[in-house]
C-alpha cells in the first residue's frame, strides 16, 4: 500500500456552461520519501488534484463525484471536516505559488510558524517559538532568531518562500504539496528552493507532490511524473522513463517545445492550437484536435492508461504502435 493513493478520482464543477469534469479517472500513488511531479499546462487539472488531496475543493461549485483519496489507507473523500482540519498542516501540508499573499502581513513570521505548531501540537508557546526559530534556521534563513521577529514584507521573495516551507514542515507532514513553488521567484532563488526541498525530503522523509509546468524542474526534482491534459493523466511512470522515452504525442510536444539551454534550435517543436475548454470535451481523446497522428478511433473513444515502454500511457497510437 502506498502512502498516498488517488484512485479513479473524479471532480466536477458547476459552471455557467453546465457541469464540467475537471478531473476524470485520475489515479496517482506516492510512497514516503519520493517526489511525484504532476506536470501540464494551465487548466489541465494539476492544481485541482492538489486541492482535492488537501480537501480544499470549494463545494459547491466543486464536487468529488467519484473515486477515493487514501492517505495511509484512510479515505479522505469520506472524512469529516473536523478530521480534514486535523489532517491539514499536520499530515499533509502545502506550499503555495505566491509567498507574499499566503503569509499574513500583520503577524511576524515567527508567530505564524509558532501558530501553525500550536494548532496541531500540545506544547507551550515558548517551546513553539523555539521550534519556529529552529525551523527557520533549518530552511537556510541567516540570523533566524532575529528574522523570526520580521514581518513578511521585510523579507525578500526567496526568504518568504523559505518561511512557507518552514511552516509547511513544522509538524513533520507525511505529504508535502508544492504548487508551482518557484513561479514567482528569480531563477537563482528557484534553484536554492529546489535544492532545499530535496534536502528537506532527505531529512524528513516526506513525500512531495510537486505541481509544475516545467519539464526541467521535473527532471531535477522528481522520481516519478504524471503528465496531465484536460483533467486526465495521459502518461505516467518514473521520471527517467517518461523523460527519456515519452510515448504520448503531447508529452513529446511538451518536451520538444522547451527552448533548451543545451541546444540552440532553429525551430521549436510546436503543439498547434490551445487546450480545449473543459465544457467542449467530446467522447474521444481530448488531445485529438491538436494531434498530428490522430485517427478516427481517437475521436470516438477515450484511450485508457496501459503499459508501454516501461511506464503507462493513454494513447491508441502509442499502444497500437502506429504513432
Amino acid at each position: 500500500m502506498s502512502l498516498l493513493e488517488i484512485d479513479q478520482l473524479k471532480v466536477t464543477f458547476d459552471t455557467r456552461y453546465g457541469q464540467v469534469t475537471a478531473l476524470d479517472s485520475v489515479s496517482l500513488a506516492m510512497d514516503a520519501g519520493e517526489t511525484l511531479a504532476v506536470v501540464g499546462e494551465s487548466g489541465c487539472g494539476k492544481s485541482i488534484t492538489a486541492l482535492s488531496v488537501m480537501g480544499l475543493i470549494p463545494q459547491p461549485p466543486g464536487k468529488i463525484a467519484g473515486g477515493a483519496i487514501r492517505l495511509a489507507g484512510e479515505d479522505l473523500t469520506r472524512a469529516s471536516e473536523a478530521r480534514l482540519r486535523a489532517m491539514r498542516g499536520a499530515e499533509v501540508a502545502m506550499i503555495f505559488q505566491e509567498p507574499m499573499t499566503s503569509l499574513n502581513p500583520v503577524f511576524t513570521v515567527g508567530d505564524q510558524i509558532a501558530e501553525a505548531i500550536l494548532l496541531h501540537q500540545d506544547v507551550p508557546r515558548d517551546r513553539a517559538w523555539k521550534d519556529a526559530v529552529a525551523l527557520l534556521e533549518r530552511v537556510g534563513i541567516p540570523a533566524a532568531a532575529a528574522r523570526a521577529q520580521d514581518y513578511p514584507h521585510q523579507l525578500s521573495g526567496g526568504m518568504r518562500q523559505r518561511v512557507m516551507i518552514a511552516m509547511a514542515v513544522s509538524c513533520r507532514p507525511r505529504v508535502l504539496i508544492a504548487d508551482e513553488p518557484t513561479t514567482a521567484l528569480d531563477v537563482t532563488v528557484q534553484a536554492q528552493i529546489f535544492d532545499l526541498l530535496n534536502e528537506i525530503q532527505r531529512d524528513f522523509g516526506a513525500a512531495i507532490l510537486l505541481i509544475t509546468h516545467d519539464m526541467g524542474a521535473v527532471s531535477e526534482m522528481a522520481d516519478r511524473v504524471a503528465v496531465m491534459y484536460a483533467g486526465r493523466v495521459i502518461e505516467t511512470g518514473t521520471a527517467d522513463s517518461v523523460l527519456d522515452a515519452p510515448q504520448h504525442p503531447y508529452t513529446r510536444g511538451l518536451i520538444g517545445c522547451i527552448p533548451s539551454l543545451d541546444t540552440a534550435g532553429d525551430g521549436l517543436a510546436e503543439i498547434p492550437g490551445v487546450v480545449p475548454p473543459l465544457h467542449l470535451l467530446g467522447a474521444g481523446c481530448a488531445f485529438a484536435e491538436r494531434c498530428l497522428h490522430v485517427r478516427d478511433t481517437c475521436r470516438d473513444t477515450k484511450p485508457r492508461l496501459t503499459e508501454k515502454a516501461g511506464h503507462h500511457v493513454a494513447c491508441f497510437g502509442a499502444q497500437e504502435g502506429w504513432l
Binding site: 537563482t188 524542474a217 526534482m221 523523460l243 533548451s260
Partner: peptide, 20 residues
C-alpha cells in the same frame, strides 16, 4: 555561470544525482 547552473534543465536528473 550561476544563472546557467540555476536554470532547470532536463540534462540534470534527480535519479542520477547532481550538484550544481
Amino acid at each position: 555561470q550561476a544563472l546557467l547552473a540555476a536554470a532547470p534543465t532536463m540534462a540534470r536528473r534527480k535519479s542520477k544525482g547532481f550538484s550544481r
